[in-house]
């Protein structure tokens, strides 16, 4: 069993942080890599990118939003409880290079994934501008950590309850207009990554995105996580999860993410009914 040693709830309980004891994974993991977690015997295998790793303590950190049964089940796990199975580190590590000026754009829980990459880009000597956004102030996570991980932080909310009133792309446009940006990294909901990439393409700025298709094994044996990049089929679990943002077929990804929506809704409803009746 992989024990939870620290647990934090954010955004009114809709987002949960777990520090999990996984020394072998913590020792090897690099920014951008993910793990697959399975709570118990009947549970699903789901991927979550690591937000943090501590090789000395032997722990990894995941931050997830409760969106369905599996994440709701994870939320019931307390400190001292654990996941039956945690597998990793999986995926290719982010390619971190000193390029000059980089812009890191994060949306929702994508900010958790963006954090270690942002920090690594700053540590290697880039000038890092960070733009993070959420629907509303309560859903904005890790503001302090992103502040520390960058040279300049901009915050947006869709409803204007905090920071700039609008989308991350509004702020991004202003930054791109100033010119001299060598790379953009964008991690968040698929529509966000799509629109950031469409924008950066106009300014010819290379862009990395981290994709989140449905996965089962995470080691390239099933093809369930396949995405189209530059017209070719790639597996997000072994070729990614990061890809050239200008080459990704986002519409296909958004469609494939709907594959089990009926079953997912039914499952989550049943889980909530049982949970709330106890």
């Amino acid at each position: 069993m992989f024990k939870i040693v620290r647990r934090e709830e954010m955004s009114d309980g809709t987002v949960v942080l777990n520090d999990i004891e996984a020394p072998k994974i913590a020792r090897k993991a690099k920014p951008g890599q993910f793990v697959i977690l399975k709570a118990n015997e009947t549970g699903e295998r789901i991927p979550l990118t690591m937000a943090e790793t501590d090789p000395e303590k032997g722990t990894i950190t995941v931050i997830y939003q409760v969106v369905g049964k599996s994440t709701a089940l994870f939320k019931t796990l307390q400190v001292g409880d654990g996941y039956q199975d945690v597998i990793g580190p999986l995926g290719k590590a982010t390619h971190i290079e000193k390029l000059g000026n980089v812009v890191c754009v994060g949306g929702g829980t994508g900010i958790a994934v963006l954090h270690p990459i942002t920090r690594a880009l700053k540590e290697i000597g880039n000038h890092v501008t960070c733009i993070i956004g959420a629907r509303t102030k309560d859903l904005l996570i890790l503001e302090d950590r992103m502040q520390a991980a960058s040279h300049e932080l901009h915050v947006c909310t869709d409803d204007g309850s905090y920071g700039h009133h609008g989308f991350v792309t509004d702020v991004l446009k202003k930054v791109l207009e100033k010119g001299d940006v060598q790379q953009v990294v964008a991690i968040g909901p698929v529509p966000m990554m799509k629109f950031v990439s469409l924008m950066t393409k106009q300014y010819n700025v290379p862009t990395l995105v981290s994709l989140n298709p449905i996965m089962v094994d995470g080691t390239g044996m099933c093809g369930g996580c396949r995405v189209s990049v530059g017209g070719k089929t790639k597996f997000a679990c072994v070729d990614g999860p990061e890809f050239d943002g200008h080459q990704v077929d986002y519409d296909e990804l958004m469609q494939r993410l709907q594959a089990y929506c009926e079953d997912e809704k039914a499952c989550y409803n049943d889980f909530c009914i049982i949970r709330d009746s106890q």
């Binding site: 009947t42 699903e44 295998r45 599996s70 089940l73 089962v216 079953d263 499952c267």
Partner: peptide
């Protein structure tokens, strides 16, 4: 793998669809 390893044939008793 879904059916045999994840026992999706027993969905929703098992969570994998």
């Amino acid at each position: 793998t879904r059916s045999n390893l994840m026992k999706a044939y027993l969905f929703p008793e098992y969570d994998t669809p």
